[in-house]
Each structure stands twice: as C-alpha cells, then as structure tokens.
Amino acid sequence: MLEVKNIYKSYNKNQVVKDVSLTVMPGEIHGLIGENSAGKTTLIKCVTGIYKADKGDVLYDEKPVYDNPEVKEKIGYVADYNEYIKYYTISQMVHMYEKFYPAFNKEKFNDFNQIFKLPVDKRIMTLSKGQKMRLAFMLETAKEPDYLILDEPTSGLDPVAKAKFFELLINEVEQREIGVLISSHHLDGLEKICDSVTMMHEGVVERQMSMEDMKSELVKLNVVFEGGAGKAVYDLPQILRISNVGSIYTMVVKEYDESFDKKLRELGASLVEPVDISLEELFVVLEEAKED
C-alpha cells in the first residue's frame, strides 16, 4: 500500500500543498484532478520522494519513501516533463536502466516498442514531446515497479497513442496488480480507468471518493415543461446549471432525491429523466458553482 499522510509543502512562504492524505492499494488506479496550480505536481513530487515534504509522511508498505533508494526502485515515475541525457540514444538509455534497475525487463520494453515504435537509434534530444512521454512510460513500466506515478501522461499523445497507453496501463494493473496514481486534465480518460479519485483545490483535498460516488455527486436531468419553466424552477437552489431546447430542459442538480423530483412535478414537469453526466462536465459545473 502507498500511503500519503497529512503532507504539507511550501515554496518560500507559499503553501502549495496543505494536509493532503491519500492511499493507493495494489491493483487500484487513483486519479488526481484539479485545476492548474491546484498543487498536483508538487504533491506527486513529494510522493515520489523528489521533494521532502515539510510535514507528513509518504509510506510504501509502512516504509518511508524519501531518501530510501530500495523503496524508490519499486516506484515508477513519469513526470510531466521528462529529461534524460540528451546525447544518449534510446538504446543507450535502455542499457543504463538495465544497469541501474536489476528488475528491468528489456523484453517488456521491446514489446511496448512494437506498439509505440520509437526510433531506438535516435538521440533523445531529437524526440518530440509525445515521444519522450512514451519513452518515459516504457522505461518506468519496464522496470516492473509495484506502483506507477504518472503526472499528465497523456499530454502530447495523439489519440491513437493515448488509446494504446490506456490499454498497456490497464494490462499492467490487471496482470501485475500494480497501484497507479495518475494526474490528468483529460477527465474523459480518467473516468474510464480510475477506481477512486482525489480532487484538489488550492493545495487542499476538496473531494476524495470512489469514481462511482464522484459520478453520483451531481445528477443530470432531462425535464419536460410543456408550458415552459417558470421563474420558480430557475430559483431552485439545487439547480447548478440549466438550459433548454424548446420545452426540454437539461439541468445539472446537486442533492437529487425523490422530494426534488416531486417538486419539479409540482412546478409542472411532465417528464423527469436522469441521464449520464461525464466527469468532465461534473468537474466544470462544480468549479463554476464555487465561483458563484
């Protein structure tokens, strides 16, 4: 189990991460979401042991991660920006990984490259952003870690590479039962792979729950008001967003229950139908609701 316990981190006087806790179990994919500068990357750098947290613990099976090379070997890390020795070719880099990590599985790297097709004789400095991201993922996964920490791994990937990346990732999770912590702004991607999710805002955890529960935080409804919806409908405090096409109103609602359903019908709704809401829309509506 990878445990983050009450982590604090500041730069100068700027508190970037405040009292953040989370756990990642083997075989679990945990998503980390939040707007830009919410503190995700700083948190990840504390989890991987690159930064020393000001306060709190990061534990791998109850052993501290920071300054612990033995444990760090078992944690793969793909950064948002991956720098390797520029003048090395990919093959030379692979060779270096083999020397550094006894568990490095070169066959797996080669299998991955059957799919990702990176030019192994090229120098790293000539690779594009997406190619460097793929290289980092391949290297870090081939070292067969118990946990993989991925910071925006899909940025710079084209749609085909993104689909393949998700496939390879879930194969690792299913076959080797690795635990994954992944941050991304591509919420549609996270939605279909994550078991649980942490939402950060200004350095603190705002929500932390299973993806299923997160998805039921808000409900999207199609509601028909044959004579049009009156002001009383618009004034309902549970409605966070409402729009209409003719007499069909689409609304995103918090704290949806039977009494709300009844209320809508009292106000003239002839049909109330819940429909699926995407994580992306849910996130946007929650952010907007905060601003109001």
């Binding site: 994550c194 078991d195 299973s210 993806m211």
Partner: peptide, 12 residues
C-alpha cells in the same frame, strides 16, 4: 477494466 475502457465508463 477492458470493458470499462471499451464502453468508456467507470470500472466501478
């Protein structure tokens, strides 16, 4: 996980 990815829904 494979079905979740295919149907674009949460594994849960």
């Amino acid at each position: 996980r494979k079905l979740a990815l295919e149907l674009e829904i949460t594994p849960g």
